[in-house]
C-alpha cells in the first residue's frame, strides 16, 4: 500500500454515501436524537440510577454531586432519574397523539379533498373554523375540561393537531384528483373509497409523514406546556413539563431543578424538527425551501 491510496478521493459507493450523508445531515441528526430518546424511554428503569419516586427528604434541593449527577428536587428525588424515566411519558404522549391526529387527519383530508359536494364542504368548513383557534389555546381548553391525566393530554393534543394535517392532505388530494390515473380508475368503475385508499392516499402519504414528524416536535412542546401549567399527568409521574412547572418555584433557590428537564425538552423538540426537515428534503425535494 502506498500513501496515495490513503489520500485518494473516495470513489464510487463511499463517495455517494458521504454525499448522501452531507445532503441529509438533518435527517441523520434527527434520527440520532429521536432514536436516542426512544432508547432511553424503553430502558429508562435500567439506566436510571434511582427510582422515579424514591424520596429522601434529608437530601432535598441538593445541587449536582457524584451521588446525584444533576441534583435533587424538593423531596430529595434524583432529578436525572426523573428526567430519564419522564422521557417515556413525554414521548408516549407526543407520539400517540400525533399518530391519532395523523389518522384522523387522513380520513378528514381524504374525504374533504376527494368527495365533491356537501360531505367535503362540511369537513372543509369545520377544519377552517378549527384552524382559526390557536392550537395551544384549543389544547388548554380541552385539557382543562378533561382534567389532569395522560388520557386528557392525548385527547387534547390529538384534537388540536388534526386540522392542520387534514388541511395539508386535502391540498395534495385536490392535486392528485386531477391526475389521469384517477380519471381512468373512475371511468372503469372503481368505487370511490377504493380509489381514495389504493390510488390517492399512497401518492399523498409522503406529505403526511413529513407533517407528522414536524408535528411531533410541536406535540412535545404542547404536552410539556400543559404539564407546566398543571394540566399534565398526575403526580408523582415525572413528566418533563410538570418537572419544569414545579421547579419554577425554586428557580432562585435551586435553579438546577429546571435545567435538566429544560435541556431534555429542547433537545427532543430539536430532534423532531430536524427529523421532519430531513425527511422533507429526502423524500420530497419539491416541497423544500
Amino acid at each position: 500500500m502506498t500513501a496515495t491510496s490513503d489520500t485518494r478521493a473516495p470513489s464510487g459507493r463511499s463517495a455517494y454515501a458521504l454525499g448522501w450523508l452531507r445532503q441529509n445531515i438533518y435527517l441523520v441528526l434527527g434520527v440520532a436524537i429521536v432514536g436516542g430518546f426512544a432508547f432511553i424511554a424503553v430502558f429508562a428503569e435500567a439506566i436510571a440510577p434511582y427510582g422515579a419516586d424514591e424520596q429522601n427528604l434529608l437530601f432535598a434541593l441538593e445541587g449536582p454531586s457524584a451521588a446525584h449527577l444533576v441534583g435533587t428536587d424538593a423531596l430529595g428525588r434524583d432529578l436525572l432519574s426523573r428526567v430519564l424515566i419522564g422521557t417515556r411519558h413525554t414521548l408516549t404522549v407526543a407520539l400517540t397523539s400525533v399518530a391519532i391526529a395523523a389518522m384522523a387527519g387522513i380520513v378528514l383530508g381524504l374525504i374533504s379533498g376527494f368527495v365533491r359536494g356537501w360531505p367535503g364542504r362540511i369537513i372543509d368548513a369545520a377544519v377552517d373554523i378549527a384552524l382559526t383557534i390557536p392550537m395551544m389555546v384549543l389544547a388548554i381548553a380541552i385539557a382543562a375540561v378533561m382534567g389532569a391525566g395522560v388520557v386528557g393530554l392525548i385527547v387534547a393534543i390529538s384534537i388540536s393537531f388534526t386540522p392542520p394535517i387534514a388541511r395539508i392532505l386535502r391540498g395534495r388530494v385536490l392535486e392528485i384528483r386531477e391526475e389521469d390515473f384517477v380519471d381512468a380508475a373512475v371511468m372503469v368503475g372503481v368505487p370511490a373509497w377504493k380509489i381514495m385508499l389504493r390510488h390517492v392516499l399512497p401518492n399523498a402519504s409522503t406529505i403526511v409523514v413529513i407533517e407528522a414528524s414536524l408535528q411531533a416536535g410541536q406535540a412535545v412542546l404542547v404536552a410539556t406546556a400543559l404539564g407546566f401549567l398543571g394540566l399534565g399527568v398526575q403526580p408523582p409521574i415525572p413528566e418533563w413539563g410538570t418537572l419544569l412547572g414545579t421547579g419554577r418555584e425554586y428557580l432562585q433557590a435551586a435553579p438546577h431543578i429546571v435545567i435538566s428537564p429544560g435541556i431534555a425538552i429542547s433537545l427532543l423538540v430539536l430532534g423532531f424538527n430536524l427529523l421532519g426537515d430531513g425527511l422533507r428534503d429526502w423524500l420530497d425535494p419539491r416541497i423544500g425551501a
Binding site: I25, Q218, N273, D277, R280, A289
Partner: peptide, 16 residues
C-alpha cells in the same frame, strides 16, 4: 442540505 423549517428556526430564535 436546505433551509430549516420555520419550527426549527423559531426554536433557535426563542432559545437565543
Amino acid at each position: 442540505m436546505r433551509s430549516l423549517s420555520t419550527g426549527a428556526r423559531r426554536f433557535l430564535l426563542l432559545a437565543g
